[in-house]
Design a protein around this nucleic acid. Structure first.
Lengths: 253, 253
DNA sequence: CCAGTCGTTGCATTGTGTGCAACGACCGTT
DNA sequence: AACGGTCGTTGCACACAATGCAACGACTGG
């Protein structure tokens, strides 16, 4: 809509691929060097890009601060956090909280396993949307047409032999998940890691977030992990109750 | 430099404070609603803002992905990571890696303590720059004039009785740190938490990052923590050697 | 010492962002 | 059910701000 802003913002994903100098940026934007310079300067003033010692540009520190503040403003997360901690204390495994947003599912909170073996994940990291238990719950709640559109645009990478292979299989799985109100990922992302997940709902019954417990095979078998399902669902329900129950004062200011 | 982009980017920190509707954004930018709308639309197209169900705007998911990719592109981090993990295995405490960037110090990697008591920190969270051990190391290496400028622009919040109270005390502390080549934070940020830190240097000898080990009093006393100093320094030196030693192929493409 | 590259600046042009005003949807009120 | 109010949205004419150009200066390698 706004050409100038559009160009400026296009620089960010470009730099996300790695540092680039002025000429490269100008070329890839298809604009004159002087134009690229001014855009980069503006981005720089806002701390979104950083000029490293060899004069090339990189993404800047402010991005972290913004992402940080963004995640802290999610009220679901705030309410859920103590519950996640308690669940972690009770079962010892890694606990995740995730939300859906415009075609992506992302972790917004995490409490690490107390076992030495940990799975790799990071808050803000996009979730393997076709296999993760939390993603299934979040997508299963989408309105039918949107779901269909999303499901067909997705890639279905075969992380393991048990990964969801295609849109048809995915939609079928989502139907099951929708019916039972919980989801699993049994080795669909990493061969040796299993997850069980349950949804958090808003006052209107729509799924606003999903939480999961993940553990590697070497710690507990998938069957053992499934025995935690009632506990996970109870925790998710507790969050749901608190989240939809007493809506906090809208705007204190 | 570019008014339009400047305005658009000003929306981000504004939304970081919390969700806002079109009118609020327009007011705080001092522009007409229609202008704000177009800017928000452009930001939206790039995924930097998200329109939640009540039509208000929030920071968007793409920010996470960008921050994520930004941190992954830092080669110091990549090289340092296995060393941090090993150090954590050896001492059991929380290990941090931080860099300095234009007046800010921020954590770019972290390995959690294996003890149940953990300190709160998060990758990307801005560091308490006047007290953190890693911040002292990073600032101590700045050129004198820049250091002076930064030190005087800083706030010196009194987190605890042992926090650095003002610029003079800070500069004095930095001189000590510069001389000894390592730094501590003994209860300067949180009363019960101590840290020891050592610098990672580039091929030219300049400090490019700093790493620290942090532990609460209830686990080890500050004296006990100081006995880890040689180990921390050895680890930092190992990273330095690898980082400055064999420079990896600049551009594979 | 010179040729080549890269970042930077001032300037004239026009394209692009801007504010305005009018519209339509939605909500709570009487 | 009709009304006033608020809020997001759109089309348009104008003016300003973003653009590309060309020239300059710093730096590098031959």
């Amino acid at each position: 809509m706004s050409q100038t802003v559009d160009r400026a913002l296009s620089i960010l994903p470009l730099l996300a691929e790695g540092p680039a100098d002025l000429g490269q940026v100008a070329d890839r934007l298809g604009v004159h060097k002087s134009t690229a310079l001014r855009l980069l300067r503006t981005l720089h003033e806002h701390g979104l890009v950083y000029r490293q010692s060899d004069q090339r540009y990189r993404l800047g520190a402010r991005l972290f601060a913004l992402a940080q503040q963004a995640v802290e403003n999610l009220d679901v997360r705030e309410i859920a956090h103590p519950h996640l901690v308690r669940l972690n204390e009770e079962c010892g495994h890694t606990v995740h909280l995730a939300v859906y947003e415009e075609g992506e599912v992302l972790y917004i909170d995490k409490v690490d396993s107390r076992y030495p073996v940990r799975m790799y994940s990071r808050i803000g990291k996009p979730v393997a949307i076709t296999v993760a238990a939390v993603a299934k719950l979040l997508l299963a709640d989408l309105p039918e047409p949107e779901l269909r559109a999303v499901a067909e645009k997705l890639d279905y990478p075969l992380y393991t032999a048990r990964s969801t292979p295609n849109a048809a299989a995915f939609l079928k799985e989502l139907a099951v998940v929708r019916g039972q109100g919980w989801a699993t990922d049994l080795g669909g992302h990493e061969e040796s890691i299993n997850c069980v997940a349950a949804p958090v709902r808003g006052a209107d019954g729509r799924v606003v977030a999903a939480m999961s417990v993940s553990a590697p095979n070497v710690v507990v078998t998938s069957d053992e992990l499934l025995t935690l399902l009632p506990l996970v669902r109870r925790t998710a329900d507790a969050i749901t109750r608190e989240y939809s129950g007493n809506p906090p004062a809208k705007d204190s200011a």
